[in-house]
């Protein structure tokens, strides 16, 4: 039984509307409160449970990607670099693979191990975030667990890095 989109997506409508207000790379305006990042728990590729709210107090870059997505593969090495450079300052990158199967993800992770955990995503997780209908898509979550920016398509990495740095604990705002 297939549900019309406007009914199926209704539970996420508020979040989706809030996310629509976040232009790519732009922070939320002062007038509107950034939406809370929906919590979830998923096992990483090694089987270790990862709960999003356990990263509270850190800046989280939640990156939806896939092994067959060329722009995603451009971004990932840079995300690893940031994780190594800024991890001790409070950055946590989390990769969500939208591949249909684990095998290609495991293979890529073996060949080019990222410096951050990877989990397998699906439609349910994507819908939690208002829908991820193209890759890559990334969400920037501040230390209070709020989504402050959404990046659709290949991100402006320079701008994204500057945004991350501005959100890290102790950064001048």
């Amino acid at each position: 039984m297939k549900a019309p989109a406007h009914f199926a997506f209704a539970p996420c409508a508020l979040l989706a509307a809030a996310l629509l207000a976040l232009a790519a790379g732009a922070s939320a305006g002062a007038a509107s409160e950034p939406p809370a990042a929906p919590d979830f728990t998923r096992a990483d590729l090694a089987g270790t449970p990862i709960k999003l709210t356990e990263f509270r107090g850190k800046v989280v870059l939640l990156n939806f990607w896939a092994t067959w997505c060329a722009p995603c593969l451009i971004e990932m090495p840079r995300f690893s670099q940031w994780q190594r450079a800024y991890g001790t300052r409070g950055l946590q990158v989390l990769g969500v693979s939208m591949d249909d199967a684990r095998e290609p993800v495991l293979r890529l992770a073996r060949q080019h191990p990222p410096a951050y955990p990877l989990i397998m995503g699906d439609a349910a997780l994507a819908k939690l975030y208002g829908g991820v209908y193209g890759l890559p898509t990334s969400f920037l979550i501040d230390t209070q667990g709020r989504i402050v920016a959404r990046y659709r398509g290949e991100a402006d990495l320079k701008g994204l890095e500057a945004k991350i740095l501005s959100l890290l604990p102790g950064a001048d705002r």
Partner: peptide
């Protein structure tokens, strides 16, 4: 991909 289809597709 399946994950994209399951989220939303053309009727």
């Amino acid at each position: 991909s399946r994950a994209l289809y399951d989220q939303g597709h053309i009727p």
